[in-house]
Design a protein around this nucleic acid. Sequence first.
DNA 1: CTTATTGCAAAAGTTTTGCACTATA
DNA 2: TATAGTGCAAAACTTTTGCAATAAG
Lengths: 157, 157
Amino acid sequence: MNEKLHEIKKMLQEDGYKLTPQREATVRILLEKDKEHLSAEDIYMLVKDKAPDIGLATVYRTLELLSELRIVHKLNFGDGVARYEITSDDEGHHHHHIVCLECGKLEEFEDDLLEEIEKRIESTKNFQIVDHRLSFFGYCKDCKDKPKSERPKMKIE
Amino acid sequence: MNEKLHEIKKMLQEDGYKLTPQREATVRILLEKDKEHLSAEDIYMLVKDKAPDIGLATVYRTLELLSELRIVHKLNFGDGVARYEITSDDEGHHHHHIVCLECGKLEEFEDDLLEEIEKRIESTKNFQIVDHRLSFFGYCKDCKDKPKSERPKMKIE
DNA sequence: CTTATTGCAAAAGTTTTGCACTATA
DNA sequence: TATAGTGCAAAACTTTTGCAATAAG
């Protein structure tokens, strides 16, 4: 069992949850596809290869549990499906999302500027921050100047 | 007819669309509630007061049209409902969310620091940003020291 | 053993669509 | 008058839930 998986198992157990084969298979997929933004359906399909008897509801329940424990981030890019990605280990290296509202193209960028804002909030509001989420929405270079008729249809990878 | 509405009428007509009474009623609501994040259902209810015969499908179609024309922003907070707000003229009026994971309390705060990041993205990536979402998650001063097991489910918005 | 977890199917909830009718430019 | 737009109901989706059966610790 790989190291990260073992760590997740411990996180689950600390909160009284079991690492069932279904949960393990789901986590394995998430670890494997750690740079992708998979929908529940995507994950379900991938997990099914390894554990054919798993149900979609279980995938949803697992993803919700992992979200609660902040083992995964639940993301929303506005196309009507939630997407999930495993939470990265390295603190202070948050990546943010830049989403094109037209074609759905997604870019990422790293920035530590938020740390500064966080510190300010923590001191002025006496609020202990454990996570943040930042997304920018707009129009990418391919879409922003195109006449509307030529714009590609939105499709998120 | 107020100025902004007239401007929107012109934007519609330039693209060959008509400003029907239903669309006008919808736009009026959006202009009126310009600081709120209304779901299609919310808007439907509000529009119904003024135009009782309007159908929900028409509201959806209108909102999609206005989104395409970039007259409204379609937003997603991750709670399974799309929200809409009229595209604001005045830049620099963004508010961010601070969500307590324990009690679900939501605070807002204004900050212009993101403008700086936005400008950098706009120039380095040639990406026209129209909106952003920034949320911080953590524990408010009242909940900071409560046991983890009692945390209620997070509720966005 | 105990009780959390699962699969299934049904339900819930949001958004889209087909179609005949209407009304705008 | 031509055709874009509408209301309604049904369809299409994604996500959640109830429940009896199962299995993890």
